[in-house]
Structure formats: C-alpha cells, structure tokens
Design a protein around this nucleic acid. Structure first.
Lengths: 237, 237
DNA sequence: TTTACTTATTCGCGTTGTGAACATAAGTAA
DNA sequence: TTACTTATGTTCACAACGCGAATAAGTAAA
C-alpha cells in the first residue's frame, strides 16, 4: 500500500518503458468464408511466417489514430468500420524486445477488400477457419495452413469470436456489405461468420422485424432468375 | 508502403515510448446496486478527485500479471474474476505525460468487497448509476456525484456496459456471489446490473434450465420466514 | 400447540419468437 | 409460350417466455 502510493507518485520516466504497437486485422467475408489480409515476413524472427500488418504508436498519436493511420498506410483505405479488439501484453510475445500490441479489427466489404489488395501487393488474402476449441487456421486459397508469426494466430481467434458474439445484436454485419445488398448476401455473411446454415424464411423475418433494413425498391441485376430486392442499412430504427 | 516497411524495420528504441499503466475497476453489487472502489487523489492533477487504483506495468511483467499484482497490492485480494476491459490511449488523457492505460475489471462478491475495504482504508466504496446514453455517476452512500479523475468515468461506463452485455451468456454473475447463494440473490445481481426488475418465476426457470446451477440441499439461515435453497455454480454443464 | 405471516416454489395460460415445409411470384432462357 | 431457378410470402407446430395465481415451507407470535 505504501509501496503502491510510492509507485503512483514515482516519476515513471525512471522506468524502462515498453514499446506500444497496433496490429490490424483487416477482415472481410469473401466467397462465403471469413478472410483476412496478411503479409509475409522476410526477416527474423518468424522469417517466412505470416503476420498482421501493424506499426508503432507515435508518442503524440492516440491508439485510434494509429489504427486509422495504419489502415491508410497499409491498405490505402480511409473509411471502414474499425474497432479496438484486445491488447496483447505477454512479455515474450516478441522475442526481440518488449512490445505491447493493441489489436484492432477493421471490417471491409468484399469489393473494397479486392480493391485494397490491388493497391497493396504485399498483402495476401487468407481464408480463416475456426476450429471449435482450437486455434484458427489461415490458409491461402487452396493452400496449407499458414504459419502465423508472433501471437497473431491468437489475435485472429479473438477477432473471430468477437465478430460472432457481436453479430446478432449489433449492425456489424452491414460493415461487411456494400451499401445496397440482398437479403441472401446478408445471410451469406451470417453463415460465414457463424459457420452454420440458417433457415431462410426465419432469417428473413428476423432481419425485417428488427427494423434495420430499408427496401430501396431496386433489384439486383445480372441474375438469370428472379432478382432479389436490394436493401439498405438504416441503423437508427 | 515503403514508409510502412521502413517503420517496421526501424529500431523502435529510437522512438519516444509511452508509459503503460493498468487501472483496476474493482466491482461488486452491494445492497442491490453496482459498486466500485475508488481512491481520493491528494495531488495534482485532479487533486481531490476520485480515481481508480492503478499502477505502471513493469518491463518484465505481462499485462495480466500487472493486473493481478495490483489487485493484491491495492486490495489484498488474491482470487477474483479478472478480465481485460479496454485500452485507453487518448494523447491528453493524462495531462502530465503520455500514458496508455489498459483497464481491467475484477468482480468481487459483496462479502469479499467489505473485507477488502477493511484492509485498505484508502479505498472508498462508490455506488454506480448508469444514465441511459450518458456518463456514469459514482457517489458515496448518500452523497453527491463524485468528480472522477482522468478518463476514469469513461472507463466505468465501458465496464458497466461490458458487464451488462456479458451477463446473460456468461457465468459472470456468479463471480459476484459467494460460493453458495440463493436464487433471489442471483436475481438481485441481475436486477442491479441490468437496472430493471425481472419476473421471478421466469428468471428461476431460465436459470435452472440453463443447467449451470447445482442445488446443495442446504437452506439459507437467519430469515424469519421460509428459507430459500442454496445453489452452487457448476460451469461445465 | 396453533395461527398468522412472509417468502420460496410450482402451476397454468396467453403471447411471442422460431424452424420447417410448402405455396406463390418474378425474372431469364429455350 | 413454357420450363426453370430463385426470391418472397404463408401456414402450422413447438418451444420459450411473461405474468398472475396457487401452493408449500419455514419462523414468530398468540
């Protein structure tokens, strides 16, 4: 207690300070499966492993600002749903030095995801599968599970679970869709994140009863059968 | 991108680093209302204001370890449900210097709460009320709302909302109760956190159907009317 | 010993949400 | 015009839930 009071008043400049970084989990749902953008490491540690894009937090920069800056720098995206996920602070999580990492995830519609990959060729798309009770697996399209650097596999697991948990009671799914979308596309997002198949009429009823969807009167185009109506997300009701 | 790769490889020792602290939200439900332990600040900034107990994270100490160490140092408690809440990283949140704070909350049964206060006289109990859409108010028993230091009011708000959100789908409520408890006591915890009154038979049915409760066969004592059965929390079923 | 009293616990009913099967509608392409 | 495919709507059974009331089980006072 006296010790605690002492620490409270002590000049913290005397302590050695950890570095603080932000790691970005750039997520989307592509072809019916959750996906994330990773970069291949060309240096030790974890050379050849796959890592989340990230960077250090500036001394005059808030955590949220750092996340948005990295989003722009790494993926050239200005607008996305960004949310702080969790802070990872194990002592040995980076073998080089003490780095505390604040993980953020950004939800990106599949179309913007593809555009971001064109602008940032060092980013690779990996599909995620969440083993029940186990770690996540990330793999390139038709590839073996990737070796993830640092504790980034753990970060992806936390992100997937957070996404699942918030799916039904928050409008988080709409951040993964373009502005106008069909109910089928919305259901595909739900099924990809929850990794289950859902009953179509029941899903439709639940979504419409929630009052978040506004019909636009427009129809999807390009289908060789009856086109579905396009809806818009209307948060406040 | 080149810039990003540069930053990635750059020696972060060259950057000025923020300090990293842990702040503890020691919560309980006392007399039917959420409560938290605060300390009065005797120095600037926020002299005379009320703050959460906290301290800096050691360079060789994980965030979780720091939280548990502070729990022992500040409240003399070894076992409690401890969970990382959120990381607050606004640049000006501490006017003296850049400090990033990782907030943890600990859930403590009312009886252990009272014991902790005896062992740590600098801690004061404040009752929390969460205004819908507004900030939380913390007040001493029969007192005016307290002036909270730093962004600690915001932290309390996030903690209350997290608690509410996790209440129904996690066994978090049982961390606020002694090992054996009555259904009425459990319902009191729910009503305090959700700030609503609940239907008693329906609550009872829901809880028992969930399969988390094991009857002990014992009865509560000291009541001048029919004593209720004591239950135990049995997580895995 | 009996009675009053208070709360725990259970019961029954109407309402609501949900899953499944099925019927209908609306487009394209042959 | 017809076949085909998917969107959209309807119906029904069933489970969950809120609510009120009835019953049970203790203590304390008469």
């Amino acid at each position: 207690m006296d010790q605690a009071a002492f620490l409270e008043s002590y000049d913290p400049a005397a302590f050695e300070r950890p570095s603080v970084a932000v790691d970005l989990i750039l997520m989307s749902v592509v072809d019916g499966a959750p996906a994330v953008l990773l970069t291949r490491r060309d240096q030790h540690p974890f050379q050849g492993g796959w890592a989340l894009p990230g960077g250090f937090v500036g001394i005059g920069e808030s955590l949220d600002d750092a996340a948005h800056r990295l989003l722009a720098e790494k993926a050239h995206m200005a607008d996305a749903y960004v949310e702080q996920l969790y802070t990872f602070g194990a002592v040995e999580r980076d073998p080089r030095m003490r780095i505390i990492s604040v993980a953020y995830f950004a939800l990106i519609p599949a179309c913007a995801f593809a555009a971001a990959m064109k602008g940032a060729p060092e980013l690779a798309l990996a599909r995620l599968t969440l083993q029940p009770g186990g770690p996540v697996e990330a793999r390139l399209p038709e590839g073996e599970p990737l070796a993830l650097a640092f504790d980034h596999g753990e970060m992806l697991g936390v992100a997937m679970l957070r996404l699942r948990g918030k799916l039904d009671y928050s409008g988080i799914a709409f951040a993964l869709l373009p502005e106008r979308f069909t109910l089928r596309a919305l259901q595909d997002v739900y099924e990809a994140i929850l990794d289950t198949s859902l009953n179509k009429p029941a899903f439709r009823r639940r979504m419409l009863d929630r009052g978040w969807l506004a019909p636009t009167g427009e129809r999807e185009t390009g289908a060789s059968f009856r086109p579905a109506e396009l809806y818009r997300y209307q948060p406040s009701r």
